[in-house]
Structures are given as structure tokens and as C-alpha cells.
Design a protein around this nucleic acid. Structure first.
Lengths: 351, 351
DNA sequence: AGCGCTTCCGTAAGCGCTTGCGTACTCTAT
DNA sequence: ATAGAGTACGCAAGCGCTTACGGAAGCGCT
């Protein structure tokens, strides 16, 4: 295994500074019991020599590990890559290392990754991505994480509650409501919902927001076509084909994330259905390409990068007596994929 | 710091299997000097107990570290996130952990990250992303990595040569040539190049390909407008505005990566310039959204995910006597952003 | 001067693992 | 049988660090 360039050890620093190993360790760790003078000398020598502690030795000996484990569904999903970007950014500033694992949207695999991270003795675990419906899995994850936290580990989650940890919560419901309201304001009355699997909390929350908006307009989600498929681009495609086939009267489609919206737009384009003239489409997340799609996508902006930073910030603070929650806010970004409902046979007449 | 749930140590496994610590270690490491029978027993017990070695202890004791350090310019750039996805995927299969750092396209910062990774004693370092023009930095990086490899570290790079390590090389030149040829075949003769900073090797190589294509048609890159800006979306915007202002006769734009192409398309859309009727646009990389843009983008497909996997594969093999190189291949993906050159005043008449 | 107290620092015991070396045993060749 | 070689395993020495613990000063107090 690689040794550091000069093979520099703490004891070298100690000797050079004329102190014992223990004193050097204390000085660099900033612990008390060392006079300012000596501490400064050690720090100076350490810096001169370019000493970097061996994290393996340090952690093994009981110092806490300075690496943070980040679990995402999939890094090459823009939603997660932006979150990861935020985490890595802040971690870099703090001199922490980030270990990334995929959960692949599989609760069992996610649990395995969490266990793995714990076994690897990372000091902080950040779990990004929606929770799952399966209560057994969630409970199990909760237990494992509780044990970890009890042993001194810090954890923060993004976009899921009920894990007994500090959480960054995107405002899914408000976003859903904003989306629904926007379409209603444009006169749409037959609105289809392209949804991910109802196993995901995120999906539930966003749907709830949409439902609330419909309710305030005297409508109900129960009367609208709702298609549950995979929470990814391909799911959006499949759902759209189904909607087109079974509900020709629909004038707007709400996709519960941008990835699905991209699938929706793709099918619409292939079929030559003009957006937004014949069909309005909205997404959710505002991934960075949303503005470059064909047509540019009306969606809910979530500050993904900040969410990553916030999560790590939370984890960096000492544990609170009870889990903290941080809402992220959201913002409706209106672009070209939405427009007034086309004049149609039944209810709507435009606003 | 967090202790593992059951605080399970190798010695527990050893006792349970009725062997010594040393034997257990050897059995699990698959080293010889242990009978098949005993080895199997140890492995079985270990699995039953759910034992996971403490990587800190393991590494400290001289076993090589099982974490791989991955340096990318920026994870929330689709090019890199897809590469990272590949690395993480394979790493997961191999039971390795991946640490990601940003270099932020800054050679100095990249060097710092490399040093950091080495100090952290990762066993493998993968550097993704183009090399830089600055020979001093490259030499320095080369030296540092050489020392690391000499000490037993493994390194693989993606998309850069001259770092004295195994390399995965996207076929930038062939891709550039394919792009150029494609546009020439469509009858374009006034072709602008939207390029990243010439500091990046990737930029140089892709340009060389384009130049070669032009040469075979009796043209020269020297006669074409070439704008060097940042190798990102915004750079594409800036370059396009400049080209539009200064070279109104251009009928096609080659952006040297998809991110820039997105910026190009954005400006064209804002100006109401129809693509491909009045202006053809091509990109490079084929990031996953390329097909969903407005219009869908003709580009060169690079197998980013595979490139990530390949890099890790190379690093996993024992060192070769001299650096290996693996070409990735490339493929021209023709979509809607390119079309025949519009009839114009001077040279071209369509094919 | 002698007592306790605090402050500063060194000694040494591990953290959990790998690995060189030595020992006990088995097998083949003489 | 018996040396020699080979195989299977245990012992114990670290890897570089943190952190009890204890000793040696220095302080104010009676």
C-alpha cells in the first residue's frame, strides 16, 4: 500500500519540535493540557514539514473519522448529482472527504449501503433521496441509524422524514400545489398526473400538493388520470402513452419530476402533439437542463446544491436534543411548456 | 466515533471458528497457507456473523486500502456524473468505496486534491477530465503520481495522456473528424468552432479532428471562426453571440462539448434563428439529455459510464510494465440539430 | 517549610488488523 | 525408521495514532 511521500509520521514532528508523541498529538488536535507556546511550536513544525495525519491510524486509535458517507439513488441523475455537488463542495471547504454510494432506489440495497458505511466507520452519513413506503425497511433503517447515532455518528437526510435524524425537506407539497394552481389558472380542467411509484414519500407528498390545489378549485384528483410508473425518464414515456391512449381529453400533464417530464415531452414530440398549444406539461425539480428542453420546461425549482450543503451543515453541528428540520423552499418557474388550455367541449373556457 | 453495531472483530470470528487470529485473517484474505477446510469454515462463520473488517485497522496494518479516490472537474456536470456513475457501479460490485473530489477545472486545486488523496492513503486514484496545458502543473502532477505509484498506489486517468499512468482515452480526434465530415457532407462550408480553453488537451484533440476533416475537403480551420471560451454552457452562449455578430455567413457551429452546445442552442433560440434550417449545431459527448434538447442534438457519443468502469478496471489490474491505453471508440449520433446547408451566396450548393 | 492543588507533559497501553517467523505435524524418499 | 521437505497453523510484533494515567514542576496557602 502506498506510503505518503516522505513517510512523515507524527513522531517525526514531535521529535523535531522536541516534545513527546502525546504532546504533539494534543497540540495538533487543539486539546487542552498543552501550553500555548509548545502548541504553537508543534503546529509550526507540523506545517513546515507538511505533515498530514494518517487517517487510518487516527481513526483506529479512536479519533473520529473525517469522512462523510453520501448515499444517493444514482449519481448520474441530475437531481442527485447536484445534491452531491453541494455536499462535496462544502466538504472540500471543511477538509472532509466524501464517499458516495448508490442505493439504486432499492430500499434493501440502501440499507446494505448504510450498514457498509457504518462498518467503514465514516463519521457522518447523509442519505439523499425519498424514503420508501415499505414500513419494515424504514423501521430497520431507522434502527440501524439510531444505533449509529448513539455511538456518536452524525446523520442527516434529504427529502425524507421519519428516519430520526436531522432532515432537509424540499417543499414537495407546496410545489405540487403551485403546479396545480398554475395549470388551473391557465384554464386546464383535465389534468393527468404522471407519477412515480407510490412507494416513494416524495411522490406522495407532491401528489398531496396537487390534490390540494385541485380541491381548492372544487376538483378532485380522484377524477383525474393518475399513472404510477418508475420515477425516471422512461416511466414518463410509458405513462404518457397510456394517458394519450386512454384519456384523449387531457390538456395538461403534471410529471412529478423533471426526468419523467422529459419522457413526457419526448413522446409528445414523437406524436407531433404541440406543447403547450394542445398539451401543457410541467415537471418538478428544475434540474439544470430544464430550461434547454424542447420546449423549455415549466417546473418547480428546488435548490439542490444548497440542499446538499445544508444537509452537511446540519450534520456538522452537534446533535440536537431532537431532530432538526430545514425546509428548502420552492419556486414555480414558468417556461414554455405551459399555456392556456385549448378551447374544448366541456368545462373549461380559459381563465 | 461510531463503533459497529455488534463491535464485531476479527478475533470474534476467529474464536467462533476455533482458529487463531492469524489464520482467520489469512482465510478471509484468501491467502495460502490455510487448508481449504479451515478457510471455508472461517468464511462461513464470518458470513453468518456479518463480519466486516475495520478498514482503518486493515489499512494501518499494511493491507492495502480498499477505497478509490476519484477526481472530477465537477460532479454535477453530466459528463462527469456519468463517469462517476460507472466508477461507483463497478466499485460497488467489487466492494470498494469511492471518494469523490472536485478539481473545479483548476490544475492547482487538482494537484492539491491528488496530494490529499494520497495522504489519505487511498489505494487507487482515478483522475477524470482533460489535462491542462500548463506544463509545470502537469509535470508536478506526474511526479506526485509517480511517487504514489512507486509506493504501490494504482492510478488510472480518463481523457488525458502524459501522466504516466494507465489511461482511458476517448477518441476525441476521430470524433472531431466525424463531426466535421458530417457537416461537410451536408454542404456546410462556413463552420464556426465553439471551443473550450486551449489549455485543455481534450479541446486540442477535438479541434485537431475537426481540422483534419476540413483538410480532407481542401479547407482549413484557420479560415473558420474559432472562439475559445469556458468549456461550459455559458461559454457556449458567449461564443455564439460573438460568432453571430462577427460572422453572419456561418451556417454551422461545432461546439466541442454538449454543455457548450446547449449554450449555443439557447442563444439561437432566443434570437429566433431556426435550427437546423438556418444553422446546424453539433455537440460532443452525447450526455443523456442530448436527445431531449430543442432541437435534439447531433453529437458524438462517448460511452461515459463505461469509461468510468474501464478506468477502474485498469486500476484494479496489477501494474503493467508500461502504462496501458484503452481507446473508447465514439459514434456519430445524428439528430435534429443538423441539416443541409442553406443555399447561400458563395461556395456551397448543398451536397 | 510543608501541604495540597493545578498545570504541563511523558509513558505506555491499546485500537483491529496483517504478516514474518517459528513450531508441529504430515508425507515422501532414502 | 529417519532425515528432508513441505504444509498448516499460532505467536507476537508492529502499523501510526489517541488517550488514560502518573510524575514533575510551579503556585498559593497555613
Amino acid at each position: 500500500m502506498p506510503k505518503p511521500g516522505p513517510g512523515l509520521r507524527l513522531i517525526d514532528v514531535a521529535q523535531r519540535a522536541g516534545v513527546s508523541l502525546a504532546t504533539a498529538s494534543r497540540a495538533l488536535a487543539g486539546r487542552e493540557g498543552v501550553s500555548e507556546e509548545v502548541a504553537n511550536r508543534v503546529r509550526r513544525v507540523s506545517a513546515e514539514l507538511g505533515y498530514v495525519a494518517n487517517p487510518y491510524a487516527r481513526t483506529l486509535a479512536g479519533g473520529s473519522s473525517s469522512t462523510v458517507g453520501l448515499i444517493v439513488h444514482q449519481v448520474d441523475d441530475p437531481y442527485f448529482s447536484e445534491i452531491a455537488g453541494g455536499v462535496i463542495q462544502l466538504a472540500g471547504e471543511q477538509g472532509l472527504l466524501v464517499q458516495i454510494c448508490h442505493s439504486g432506489r432499492d430500499p434493501e440495497h440502501e440499507l446494505r449501503q448504510i450498514r457498509n458505511l457504518i462498518a467503514q466507520r465514516v463519521g457522518i452519513i447523509i442519505v439523499a433521496g425519498s424514503g420508501y413506503g415499505d414500513p419494515r425497511m424504514e423501521a430497520e433503517a431507522r434502527t440501524v441509524l439510531a444505533g449509529y447515532q448513539h455511538a456518536g455518528g452524525r446523520v442527516a437526510v434529504i427529502g425524507r422524514h421519519a428516519l430520526g435524524a436531522d432532515a432537509v425537506l424540499p417543499d414537495n407539497e407546496a410545489g405540487g400545489r403551485a403546479l396545480g394552481t398554475h395549470l388551473l389558472d391557465l384554464g386546464h380542467r383535465r389534468i393527468a398526473l404522471v407519477s412515480g411509484t407510490p412507494e416513494l414519500n416524495t411522490v406522495i407528498d407532491r401528489m398531496a400538493g396537487v390534490a390540494a390545489a385541485l380541491r381548492s378549485a372544487g376538483l378532485s384528483l380522484d377524477d383525474m388520470p393518475v399513472v404510477h410508473t418508475d420515477f425516471v425518464r422512461e416511466g414518463g414515456r410509458i405513462a404518457t402513452e397510456k394517458i394519450l391512449a386512454e384519456h384523449p381529453d387531457v390538456t395538461a400533464i403534471i410529471a412529478l419530476n423533471d426526468a419523467m417530464a422529459m419522457g413526457v415531452l419526448a413522446v409528445l414530440r414523437e406524436r407531433g402533439i404541440p406543447v403547450p398549444e394542445r398539451m401543457s406539461v410541467v415537471g418538478f425539480d428544475d434540474v439544470s437542463v430544464a430550461g434547454d428542453l424542447a420546449p423549455s420546461l415549466t417546473t418547480i425549482r428546488l435548490p439542490m446544491t444548497d440542499m446538499g450543503r445544508m444537509a452537511l451543515e446540519l450534520a456538522l453541528k452537534p446533535t440536537a436534543s431532537r431532530p432538526r428540520r430545514r425546509a428548502t423552499g420552492q419556486q414555480l418557474i414558468i417556461r414554455d411548456s405551459t399555456g392556456p388550455a385549448p378551447a374544448s367541449r366541456s368545462t373549461a373556457h380559459g381563465s
